[in-house]
Simulated assay, not measured.
Amino acid sequence: MTPTLASALMPLLRGLDPETAHNLALQALGWGLAGRDTAPDDPVLATSALGLAFRNPIGLAAGFDKNAVAVLPLMRLGFGFVEAGTVTPRPQLGNPRPRLFRLEEDRAVINRMGMNNQGLEAFRARLAALKRPLPAVLGGNIAVNKDDAVPERDYPALYAALAPLCDYVAVNISSPNTPGLRDLQGEARLVAILDAIAAVRTPEGPPLLVKIAPDLADDAVAAVVEACAARGVAGLIVSNTTIARPDSLRSPHRGEAGGLSGAPLLARATEVLKLAYRLSHGRLTLIGVGGVASGVDAYAKIRSGASLVQLYAGFAYAGPALIPRMKRELAALLQRDGFRSVADAVGVDAARDDRPQAA
């Protein structure tokens, strides 16, 4: 099956409960039913970031493959990198269903999954069983359990467990669906966590990233940037889902609790991305995520400061055919504007502050 044919079947899945459809899609991927993108990537898309080589800058965000059950099939769809997880030390069921909602009128998703996953042991076993070398860069996303969590203990243990198996590890302190997790973005707690991870990191270990919320105030973003830059963090993932509800939402599900992702998140996530780029002064590599659903969106993230981009809701709606289409669009845009590489375009728009100014 080709990615295009697999995408043609997406309307059938959308007739099902969203979580059931998602689980069936993962099973189909695991069985190899989604096909693969066999076309070579345009050389203009190749890029280096985080000390790693990427065949293209388009990645799959954490949350799609929480348990690392379809890493290789996902990579074969043409992604430049895949971030598996979020994984917690122990298995947890997450929040009661229903907990995943399509906002089709808004090309958006609301989830309050609660980081349901099978735990570190199962996750690590699946990563260890992957046949290497992998066709794309592999990231692992880590967080603490809802109950009995000690962040300064758990994050270092998770990092150490995944270090031999992942090309980078991302610390999730920004999901809105685990009580108290976003409080870890506060400077004091974040510093304590990063210092604890530093105690188990080695120079040969994979780069460490921190995933932040789009709802942080500007001064909080600045504090996170400085804390990360001062402690050897390689980059930020900007951003997680939002708890905000724009007035533009039209779906009957717009009032559901949880994190909003998809098209309505694009503007705010890109604004925070630009801010982080201006504040970091090249000290951190940025991954832009939030509302990406086309090559145009990916290009906007790159021009706003992202060296790499990720998507989730856009992929969930459009299916596997989206990835080769995005790559073609992005390559054409880079070449149209005279850029010889992705890296040449990073941040060219970030110096301009488009936010309304006070009178």
Results as ranks from 00 to 15, higher is better:
A192C: 04
A192H: 00
A192D: 13
I193N: 06
I193P: 10
D195G: 03
D195E: 15
A196T: 10
I197A: 08
A198V: 01
A199S: 14
V200Y: 06
R201E: 10
T202S: 13
P203Y: 09
P203Q: 04
P203E: 10
P203M: 10
E204Q: 15
P207A: 11
P207W: 03
L208Y: 04
L209T: 05
L209M: 09
V210T: 06
V210Y: 00
V210K: 03
K211D: 01
K211P: 10
K211T: 05
I212K: 09
P214R: 10
D215E: 04
D215I: 00
A217V: 00
A217F: 10
D218W: 04
A220V: 00
A220N: 01
A222N: 05
A222M: 01
A222C: 08
A223T: 01
A223Q: 11
E226A: 12
E226H: 06
A227W: 06
C228D: 05
C228M: 08
A229N: 02
A229M: 05
A229R: 03
R231Y: 02
G232W: 05
G232R: 07
G232P: 12
V233E: 01
A234L: 06
A234Y: 07
I237D: 09
V238E: 00
V238N: 10
S239K: 09
N240L: 11
N240H: 08
N240K: 11
T241Q: 12
T241C: 13
T242V: 09
T242M: 10
A244R: 13
A244E: 15
A244V: 01
P246G: 14
D247L: 15
D247Q: 15
D247S: 15
S248W: 00
L249E: 06
L249F: 08
R250E: 15
R250M: 14
P252H: 12
H253D: 07
H253N: 15
R254Y: 12
R254G: 07
G255C: 13
E256L: 03
A257W: 14
L260H: 03
S261A: 14
A263T: 13
L265E: 06
L266I: 00
A267T: 15
R268C: 02
T270L: 07
E271S: 10
V272R: 05
V272K: 04
V272A: 07
L273D: 04
K274V: 00
L275E: 08
Y277D: 03
Y277I: 03
S280D: 13
S280V: 00
H281M: 05
R283C: 02
T285L: 06
L286M: 11
G288D: 06
V289M: 09
V289H: 04
V292S: 08
A293Y: 02
A293G: 13
A293V: 00
G295D: 08
G295K: 06
V296K: 15
V296Y: 12
V296F: 12
V296D: 14
V296N: 07
D297A: 10
D297K: 04
A300N: 14
K301S: 02
K301I: 08
K301D: 01
R303P: 08
R303T: 08
G305V: 14
A306K: 11
S307T: 11
L308W: 11
L308A: 13
V309Q: 12
V309F: 09
L311W: 02
L311Q: 10
L311F: 04
Y312V: 07
A313Q: 03
